[in-house]
Design a protein around this nucleic acid. Structure first.
Lengths: 166, 166
DNA sequence: ATTAATGGTTACAAAATTATAACTATTATC
DNA sequence: GATAATAGTTATAATTTTGTAACCATTAAT
């Protein structure tokens, strides 16, 4: 195993170990305070970040089967958190974007997430926080980039396999 | 808002944005290849990392209600992946640890996770990988530390509130 | 002009996750 | 010794998430 392999293995160990902790901070704690499901939270988060997304895009971002995205979005529309938007050039495509109400709501959610994180970091000193910030920034930068290029059109695990097994 | 607040807000934004991407790499992809649920994967991961954990400890680590931990562990015992272990001093406590089979199985799962990550990082150059490794290491170090001190005994959201609202 | 491919929906089923209440056994506290 | 607290289980229900297949409308390809 060469150096690069070793490095990827190390990244894998560290990042995978962090997943449940992040879930505890950013999902579980927030759910109980907002009555929103994980997928709803992540849908709003994706829309906040991207401005607008197609149905397929949302499914891709959350790794959720396409048919379920319809249900997910229907619920959010009923709550007036998001709205549909037709593409002018291709009438198959439907964009989803946050409504004003949705933006306000998700801004509040971001506050709650930040407070949840703050509570977890109470005992961490200033120096470490600063370094943590740089690390988080960098990881987000890289992963956001690779996130874009990850297998497109993977709206159900079967469709996914089809693409991967080529 | 002072500097420290600004910094925590930035960490919150960056880490929360990364959650669905990590889920895609380390959970969704792996589930379909292993027929294991997210919670099963994370239980094995926690046991791999900690050696042994009490039922309550597992619930805390995964933010899962205590009664559900019983079901979760029962399934893993049926598959001979983990085993119970009594505490000598306190007969209420039951430790759970990986069996030999469980260790082998999770080692394979770690391989799959690493491969999943490798596929995502294909286009990232060596320099960036190195910096990503350092960042991941640091984040894991800090979060593992705070993870330990996060609200103990929070095995259901209601119990959780009880603790928090003090 | 047919045919294939893409984006999205409908309908349905199965499995996983979350939430509670009530309970046993054991240990700690007064 | 009575009472409270802790660790874990049983039972049950509701909700969320995952997985398929078949389908419509629109666009791309031949």
């Amino acid at each position: 195993m060469d150096d690069l392999d070793q490095e990827i293995k190390s990244i894998s160990d560290n990042l995978s170990h962090v997943v449940p902790i992040l879930g505890r901070i950013f999902i579980k704690g927030v759910r109980s305070k907002t009555n929103m499901t994980q997928q709803t939270l992540q849908t709003l988060g994706a829309l906040w970040h991207h401005g607008k997304l197609t149905m397929t895009g949302i499914g891709h971002h959350l790794s959720v089967p396409k048919p379920h995205v319809t249900a997910l979005v229907d619920r959010l529309i009923a709550e007036e958190m998001v709205e549909r938007l037709n593409d002018e050039n291709d009438r198959r495509i439907i964009y989803i974007q946050l409504t004003e109400k949705g933006r306000e709501r998700f801004w509040e959610i971001k506050q709650i997430m930040t407070e949840s994180l703050r509570a977890s970091l109470l005992l961490v000193d200033k120096e470490k926080l600063h370094k943590l910030n740089e690390s988080a920034q960098y990881i987000n930068e890289i992963l956001t980039e690779v996130g874009k290029t990850m297998i497109q059109n993977c709206s159900s695990s079967s469709e996914c396999k089809k693409e991967i097994d080529v």
